[in-house]
Amino acid sequence: MTKNAEQQLVDPFEAALGVSDVKGRSPWEDAWHRLLKNRAAVYSAFIMGFMVLLVVFGPMLISWESDFTDWDYTSSPPSLESGHWFGTDAVGRDILVRTLEGGRISLLVGLVATIVSLVIGVSYGATAGYFGGTADRMMMRVVDIIYALPFMFLMILLMVVFGRHILLIFVAIGAVNWLDMARIVRGQTLSLKNTEFVEAARACGVQDWAIIRRHIVPNLLGVVIVYVTLTIPQVILIESFLSFLGLGVQEPMSSWGALVSDGAQDMESAPWTLIVPSVFLTVTLYCFNYIGDGLRDALDPKDRL
């Protein structure tokens, strides 16, 4: 049916209803409108965007180098005169530039580790859910067993044994976080695989893997997006936790957790060394959590928590 013929069919109804050119809205548009109505989420998204710009470009705009030690101003409080707007640490390094560069690492860890867990979790969960039966039971049993391990401790063990390499941190955190993703994706896949369009694809003789790739995974997008936004802050938190204990990224690299740890050492004489990175870290986590909440409400209109 051509576009024109379609329009001719619809016209009488439109005339009867007194509307012209009804435009349909996809579920995605609906979700987008719901999201825009959630003010906390929108503000958080703006703040987060600003934070990302600040962390990426900020260090280029500030005249201090992060490892430059300004002996004239050691442990000096925030001031405009000295040029150290947020003060310096005990060896005279500019807190602002260090915090922004630490933010690069923290956000990078958040992003990369989340992608690692996303890839593993989605492919594992979709496979288990799609094939079902014994394969599914075995695969999910493995997830259950791993799930019960005390991860924080194993992670610390890993850091101790293999040394603190940033790549290892990415992989270790990502490898831990895929479990939830796998469970959620599997559940969703189970309900998707009995839908008509999957059946139709199968009837057309489409291969299993192609069905998973073309029909199942795209339909998982909503759940996955929500879960990703909630995973990023978790990952940032884990990295900060490790760095705080002195087991995360190594000098001269820094991250928010390491900076908070440094700041906590001399907070009595120089509280700004603690407060500045703490505020950056907290604002970031706060925003991500609100964005995740907003997305969940928008994409899953059921009255969830």
């Binding site: 908070v260 603690l274 907290t282 959590n289």
Partner: peptide
């Protein structure tokens, strides 16, 4: 959102 290793030093302070 506030990790406890941030809250703890601030409360101590």
């Amino acid at each position: 959102s506030i990790p406890n290793f941030v809250i703890a030093p601030i409360l101590i302070l």
